[in-house]
Design a protein around this nucleic acid. Structure first.
Lengths: 140, 140
DNA sequence: CGGGATCCAGAGCGATACTG
DNA sequence: CAGTATCGCTCTGGATCCCG
C-alpha cells in the first residue's frame, strides 16, 4: 500500500510529482487481493447490510484474517460502514457508504472491460507461447 | 499475479467460480506498480510511439528493470506493441494497441475517481487517527 | 461469532553490474 | 540504447492459535 516511508523518501528527494498521482494509491487499495470482490459483494447486496460470516461465504477462498484486514482497510478509508450489535454472540454488519458506492461505478466499468476483453489477453499470451515454442521459422 | 497453481488448486477443490472472475486477473496486472502509469504515458502520447528512454524519463521513479518487466508483460498481454529499429545503437518504440487504448477508457474513469475522491479517503483516515488519539470522549 | 496475534512462504520490486 | 541477471529487502497473504 505504498508505505509512508516510501513517499517520505520521494518527497525528501525533491520530486513532488507523486502527490499528483492518487491513481497509484487507489490501485494499491483496490489491487489488494480481496478488496474489489468485497466491494462487489456489498454492492450486489444493494443498500442492505451483510454480516461477517455472510461476506466470508460470498467471497469464496478468503481467509477470515484477510477478510478482517480487508474490511478494516475499507472501513478506515470510509468506503464501508461497520455496525455492531452488542448481543452476546456479537453480530457485525457491513454496508457500502456513499463513497464506496461511487467507487463501485468506475470499478464496475473495469469489471465489464475485464469480462469483455480478458479472453483477448489470454489469446495474446497464447500466441506468444506458440511463437517461442516453435524455434523461429518465418518464411514459408 | 495469481499463479496458475492457485487456480488449479481451486478448480481441483471443485469451485469453478473463479474463471468467471477475470476482474481479479485484470487487477493483478494493472495493480502492478508501474503498469497503469505506463499505459497513461503511452495514452497521453496519442497514437505516437515512445522510445524506452523516453518512457523511463516520463515515468519518474521507475527503474530500468521494472520498466522492462512491465513493458514485457504489457506486450505479452497484447496491450502495447513493440517495434525495433535494427540500428547499431538499437532503438525500440512502444505504442498502445487498440486493446490497450480500450483498456485506457475504464482506467481513465478510475483515475478521475481517484483524483476526485482520494481526499475524502484521506480525510476518513485522518478521522480514524484522531479518534484513536484522544481516548474516547463522545458526548459534549 | 467475530476478530486479533503470530509465524512463515512467496511475490514485488529496487540497486547494482554486465551484455549486444 | 535497451535489456538481462543476481541479490536482498519488504510486504502480501495464508495457516494456525487464542480471546471477548
Amino acid at each position: 500500500m505504498t508505505s509512508p516511508a516510501t513517499r517520505q523518501a520521494k518527497q525528501a528527494r525533491g520530486d513532488l510529482f507523486d502527490p499528483d498521482c492518487p491513481t497509484r494509491r487507489l490501485l494499491d487499495r483496490i489491487g489488494t487481493k480481496w478488496t474489489s470482490m468485497v466491494i462487489k459483494v456489498l454492492a450486489d447486496a444493494g443498500d442492505g447490510e451483510v454480516r461477517f460470516a455472510d461476506l466470508r461465504r460470498r467471497t469464496p477462498g478468503v481467509s477470515q484474517k484477510m477478510l478482517s484486514v480487508t474490511l478494516q482497510s475499507l472501513t478506515r478509508d470510509g468506503l464501508i460502514a461497520r455496525r455492531v450489535e452488542p448481543t452476546v454472540p456479537p453480530k457485525v454488519h457491513y454496508r457500502l457508504t456513499d463513497l464506496g458506492r461511487s467507487l463501485n461505478v468506475p470499478l464496475t466499468a473495469l469489471r465489464d472491460w475485464a469480462e469483455a476483453h480478458m479472453v483477448e489477453i489470454d489469446r495474446a499470451n497464447a500466441v506468444q507461447s506458440a511463437e517461442s515454442t516453435r524455434g523461429a521459422n518465418r518464411s514459408t
